[in-house]
Design a protein around this nucleic acid. Sequence first.
DNA 1: ACATGACTTGCGAAACTCTTCATCTCAAGT
DNA 2: ACTTGAGATGAAGAGTTTCGCAAGTCATGT
Lengths: 114, 114
Amino acid sequence: MGVPLYQAKAELFKTLGHPARIRILELLSERDHAVHELLEKISIEPSNLSQQLGVLRRTQLVTSNRSGGAVVYSIAVPEVRDLLLAGRQILGQLAAQQSQLSAELAGAQESTAD
Amino acid sequence: MGVPLYQAKAELFKTLGHPARIRILELLSERDHAVHELLEKISIEPSNLSQQLGVLRRTQLVTSNRSGGAVVYSIAVPEVRDLLLAGRQILGQLAAQQSQLSAELAGAQESTAD
DNA sequence: ACATGACTTGCGAAACTCTTCATCTCAAGT
DNA sequence: ACTTGAGATGAAGAGTTTCGCAAGTCATGT
């Protein structure tokens, strides 16, 4: 099949590795959005938004269709929601470990308090 | 709280956006590995491996402890497995859509064939 | 036909990432 | 004390990404 699996996977994650692209996917996983709607909710230049949409389109994570004057984007692969959720989970876990660590540092002599 | 959530999320995904780092996490999610064990299974230069481990360590996804001569790495956040799994899922979905597309192109006049 | 709003595309400068090389630390063996 | 194997770290060059600007397309209203 050519491309090693782990490389394809790395590329998928790299695609998600940009704040604007994350926001786009989160908004689209709620409902379809026209570009100008995304533009209202994400504060970047139109051309920048368009570039990021292009990246997501090329990796087939989203699709676009023109509806009159506007171009409407949708999530192409529903499983993206799971991925975003798993990301949120990890971030939460990481934050929890951080605060546990600082609590331990603060009350260093306490034995697994309360 | 400073850093916007979507930015933290982007950074998390960016961390996973590298083939060597993906392989490391997949190996570690099976079991702990010493650096020289990882080195046998992933073919990159030792110093490169060390750099990638450094990246994972800095984002707190893995932890290391020295065991005599060797340094052993472990997954710090078990939820990483879910994230990798979700990635695999999406890749599968994407591949399925690709092959469905080419099938449709091949038998263009067939109506949702066989 | 022309203007307008909604997007997209090409381009270049700045910022960032990857990989390798040389150097360094740490622990165990002699 | 010296050597050796196992890793980490810093720095430099190549390569890739990102962002804003200017210019371009496409459909709708006048």
